Simulated scan of single mutants.
Amino acid sequence: MGGAVLDGLLEAAVYVDDLDAAEAFYGGLLGLERILRLDGRHVFFRCGRAVLLCFVAEATREPPHNPDLPVPSHGADGPSHVCFAASGTALVAWRERIEAEGLEIEQDFRWPNGARSIYLRDPAGNSVELAEPKLWFGGDG
């Protein structure tokens, strides 16, 4: 590859229809730090050394209006998926917190390698997974 190496995932996006609901879910329930919001278009959150981008799909399909930020149009239809890393001990606390908020846990199970995953839906219907890192990286995660 001649030195062309990726250092990790910098950002991931989900598409939402209600920025207030997205902010309450990702910022409130999950406790992610909001770093930027543009009403009607997006709200961004820091998660460790990565960023979760919550976009209103229709707004991101429009071509950019600022020549200094020539980001290509994008957007997606339908629910997507995002997974956050959490230790096994933290997953116990997360399950309690999610249930205390009256949210439905879609699934809570152990993978063949012993890693645990908890699935729920955000207000836009995106699949949100909280999983032990050993799901992909081995070890005790």
Rank of each mutant, 00 (worst) to 15 (best):
D7P: 00
D7A: 12
D7W: 01
D7C: 00
D7L: 08
D7K: 11
G8K: 02
G8Q: 03
G8Y: 06
L9R: 00
L9T: 14
L10G: 10
L10V: 15
L10S: 12
L10N: 09
E11M: 12
E11Q: 11
E11A: 15
E11W: 00
E11N: 14
A12P: 03
A12K: 01
A12D: 05
A12Q: 04
A12I: 13
A13I: 08
A13M: 10
A13G: 04
A13K: 05
V14S: 04
V14Y: 00
V14L: 15
Y15C: 07
Y15W: 00
Y15V: 05
Y15G: 02
V16L: 01
V16M: 05
V16I: 13
D17G: 15
D17C: 09
D17H: 08
D18S: 04
D18F: 05
D18E: 00
D18G: 06
L19S: 07
L19Y: 03
L19M: 09
L19A: 05
L19D: 05
D20H: 04
D20W: 03
D20C: 00
D20V: 09
A21H: 02
A21N: 01
A21F: 03
A21T: 12
A21Y: 02
A21W: 00
A22I: 11
A22P: 07
A22N: 01
A22D: 03
A22C: 12
A22E: 05
A22F: 08
E23L: 03
E23D: 13
E23A: 10
E23F: 01
E23W: 02
A24W: 02
A24C: 02
A24S: 13
A24H: 06
F25V: 09
F25S: 11
F25L: 06
F25Y: 07
F25A: 10
Y26D: 12
Y26Q: 09
Y26N: 09
Y26K: 08
Y26M: 07
Y26L: 07
Y26G: 12
Y26A: 04
G27L: 09
G27T: 06
G28W: 01
L29C: 10
L29N: 06
L29D: 09
L29A: 11
L29E: 08
L30C: 13
L30M: 15
L30P: 09
L30K: 03
L30E: 07
L30N: 04
L30D: 03
L30Y: 02
G31Y: 07
G31N: 13
G31P: 03
G31S: 12
G31H: 10
G31K: 14
G31M: 11
L32N: 07
L32S: 11
E33M: 10
R34I: 13
R34F: 06
R34L: 12
R34P: 11
R34H: 06
R34D: 03
R34M: 15
I35N: 14
I35C: 11
I35F: 05
L36I: 07
L36P: 02
L36G: 08
L36T: 07
